[in-house]
Every structure is written in structure tokens, then in C-alpha cells.
């Protein structure tokens, strides 16, 4: 059974790039344009095996999203990775405190992405 990954990013380019890689890796990919959209998807039954979220987004940013997502019943233990740039290391720690599992550094190469996904999603 292929694993489902939810990508949350306000940049369609970023989503397209990550989605293409993941789909080639055999994953099912869902996407949302901001934290609010993502949260709505999660509230209406989406149960991803992994969430990859950007930090800076309109409407609801990554930090607030992680906090809200963790409070949902089925998402207490779901791995969440943040998408950060190397210049914002402090955000990673902040995100971890709010419940993030780890981070990806933009730009993410296809190999790195798949490697990290395999590290956090058992059976992926």
C-alpha cells in the first residue's frame, strides 16, 4: 500500500517539484496552499503518513499549522517535516518544540528528499 504524503506550501512551483519526486518514488501526494487549507483537509478525513510543510505561508503559517495539526486526534504521532532555508536554523528548533519531527533544507534534492522520507516513514 503506497504511503500518502501531504505537502503544504504556498508556492505551486515548490509543490510541483516535491510532488514530482515523491510520485516517482511511489508515494501518493496530497497538497495544500497554506496551513488553513491543510488543516481543513486533515479535519475532513485525510490521514497522511507524513506531512511536509513550508514555514512562511499566508493565512496560516507552518508553526501555527503544526501546533493545530498535532491537536487533531489522528495526528498525534504523524511525522511532520518543515521546509526551511539554511538561513533559518532557529525556525527548525522552534518547529520541533511545537511537534515537528525534523526538517528539509530548501532546495531539496530528489535523493535527499526520498532518503529523509524513508527515514521517518516506516514501511515507505
Amino acid at each position: 500500500m503506497s504511503k500518502t504524503i501531504l505537502i503544504v506550501d504556498d508556492s505551486a512551483t515548490m509543490i510541483m517539484s516535491i510532488k514530482t519526486t515523491l510520485e516517482m518514488g511511489g508515494y501518493k501526494v496530497e497538497s495544500a496552499g497554506d496551513g488553513l487549507q491543510a488543516l481543513n483537509k486533515l479535519k475532513t478525513g485525510l490521514k497522511p503518513d507524513l506531512i511536509i510543510t513550508d514555514v512562511n505561508m499566508p493565512n496560516m503559517g507552518g508553526m501555527e499549522f503544526i501546533q493545530n495539526a498535532r491537536a487533531l486526534p489522528g495526528l498525534r504521532f504523524t511525522p511532520i517535516l518543515t521546509l526551511t532555508t539554511e538561513s533559518h536554523a532557529s525556525k527548525r528548533e522552534e518547529a520541533k518544540k511545537l511537534g515537528a519531527t525534523g526538517w528539509l533544507v530548501k532546495p531539496v534534492s530528489g535523493n535527499d528528499l526520498l532518503k529523509v522520507v524513508k527515514q521517518v516513514v516506516p514501511g515507505a
Binding site: 508556492s11 512562511n56 499566508p58 532555508t85 532546495p107
Partner: peptide, 15 residues
């Protein structure tokens, strides 16, 4: 907002 836009563009260009 401005930061976010520049940030997005930078992230994308890195692809």
C-alpha cells in the same frame, strides 16, 4: 509578506 515573497522566490530558484 514581502519577506515571504522573496523567500518563496529564492526557494523556487534553488530548484
Amino acid at each position: 509578506e514581502l519577506f515571504r515573497l522573496v523567500h518563496t522566490l529564492k526557494g523556487n530558484s534553488g530548484l
